[in-house]
Design a protein around this nucleic acid. Sequence first.
DNA 1: GTGTCAATTTGACTTTTGTCGAGAGCCGTG
DNA 2: CACGGCTCTCGACAAAAGTCAAATTGACAC
Lengths: 321, 321
Amino acid sequence: MAIRPAEQLIHKAAWLYYAHGLRQDQVASQLNISRASVAMYLRKARETGIVNISTSTQLFTDDVLARRLEDALGLDSVWIAPENAYVVDPATDIAVLAASVFLELVKKGDRIGVAWGRTVYTIADIMSYADLQDVTVVQLCGNLGAPYSYRPDQCTMEIARRLNAKGLNFYAPLVLTTEELARGLRAEPVIREQLSGIGDCDLMLFSVGTVDADSHVVKCGALTSGEMEMLRKAGAAGVIAGQIIDSAGAALDCSHNRRVISADLQSLRAIEKRLMVVQEDSKFEPLLAALAGGLCTHLVVGAQMAQRLLDHAGAAGKNAP
Amino acid sequence: MAIRPAEQLIHKAAWLYYAHGLRQDQVASQLNISRASVAMYLRKARETGIVNISTSTQLFTDDVLARRLEDALGLDSVWIAPENAYVVDPATDIAVLAASVFLELVKKGDRIGVAWGRTVYTIADIMSYADLQDVTVVQLCGNLGAPYSYRPDQCTMEIARRLNAKGLNFYAPLVLTTEELARGLRAEPVIREQLSGIGDCDLMLFSVGTVDADSHVVKCGALTSGEMEMLRKAGAAGVIAGQIIDSAGAALDCSHNRRVISADLQSLRAIEKRLMVVQEDSKFEPLLAALAGGLCTHLVVGAQMAQRLLDHAGAAGKNAP
DNA sequence: GTGTCAATTTGACTTTTGTCGAGAGCCGTG
DNA sequence: CACGGCTCTCGACAAAAGTCAAATTGACAC
């Protein structure tokens, strides 16, 4: 019988195996199929998120360093990926941790804002599947016109797919050529609606970009390296969802920001849980800017970066009083 | 080195294996231990709840029968354990499902009320481990003086142990000989505090007892079969947390209820999620009584019982208009 | 009818995992 | 300091799970 085995069989096999603790051959005889099929169904069950295998990220917050950072920075929670005994490379380790943390923070019924970039896409890519109900994933900023590897819509859709959620894409370019056009587009009902819905999110996933010639926004063509150079001289310190922020974490008053279609920082701050993930050690300054702006509540970083942050906070603390 | 490998190693092994997807031998070489040890740590990780393997109970609510029951009874959610292709026996199947559902409903930070009885204890016994933070499990009624297999405190403690939660026991007998003594005891600060804390629970797990000579409360010696006989004549229809309810689901006006140390039904109804589990088909009448009293919001039953409930609701519906 | 196609299933094989008893280090005790 | 008792660890074997190419099946078009 080559009838589509439907979710029914997958679910049943998963139930017998994982919930009742039967062995695969026992499941096979219960369902009158071969053990090989059972093995296949179980793989599908894991890939679909019908079964969920998660490991506690407790240890990574229990770290003394993490606790001290939480206090020093006034964050809800900090996770630190240890960098001594890493598995593949520090960046991947951080992404794996971030994916677990993210899945731990998602609740059914949630509305989730997702930014973009290499970090976010890496997380999406290694994230395991979940079968959450009534979850919506919304794109936080416009798209890139040119085809590029880690596009905002790709990040959004991939995460939505993994969570078995609805993905809400942004059908607008990230950056326009004139401010007037950007204003006009923002006023469009479809766009306006999406932008105003961002504040209703329960959770947000993002990273922060650098403001040098290697920056993501430069490489993807949203800005030339010359423009970036000028912006940096004007006080640019980081990039959040396509927008330039200064070292205080406020949106920089510049033409680029006025030509961008993206969630404004005010709306982002209205989101209860804002998970920021930083992989590269080179993102120290941008990270500081984002923290200064109170843009994140939950943070995942590597051990090295964590130490730098704490040293910085300690030094600043000592200078202040 | 026979130093206690602490949670540290267990956690690390679990992380590499489950989050990073390494094989056991790879984990072993990473941690410089034998693969056999890795296998052992992983088992411990599962037993501790450091890793969590859960399977969606979606299918059991998606059932048409379940949906119709939700509507007919006005419940938030109904799960039906299919009884045709059962694994061990219907009762165990129901308990396995109930345990999964229960774990799905628990959130960290929750306060959970737990009643007692064979059903509750069975669920506790097969429930997998979880590593939840800040969870408190409170006992909903007093204890039995005589040693008995499914004691209230055992149910509470076992569930607390599985969830890695704090267990709050009731240091009072379930039923006293005089009403006066019961009143006095209820007024005791320790007891009063515990009783008044019940309404603050987020979740409650309970079953309902029968009111015949085979009843749990009779077998454990809280009531003689003669007393039970009289209570039944007086309108007793079921038992909830040691208290007798009538067919409308209200506390029966009787001496026994006045001599019992237990959460009053009003407090129970203040709990947001009230999960009731019924294993035996013989509990049809008690179940109806509990439903009539609006005592549960979430229900787990077997297919046969579900069908009877729906037939009953349908018949009642037809008679009414 | 019957040929084609894609999906599903399976048996046989390989790899991975679970388990057990033996051994080794640690500690308090006599 | 020798002695069990204890826990942790490991090697080797047995059991279970993963994988793949080949076979079967039903649907559909001709």
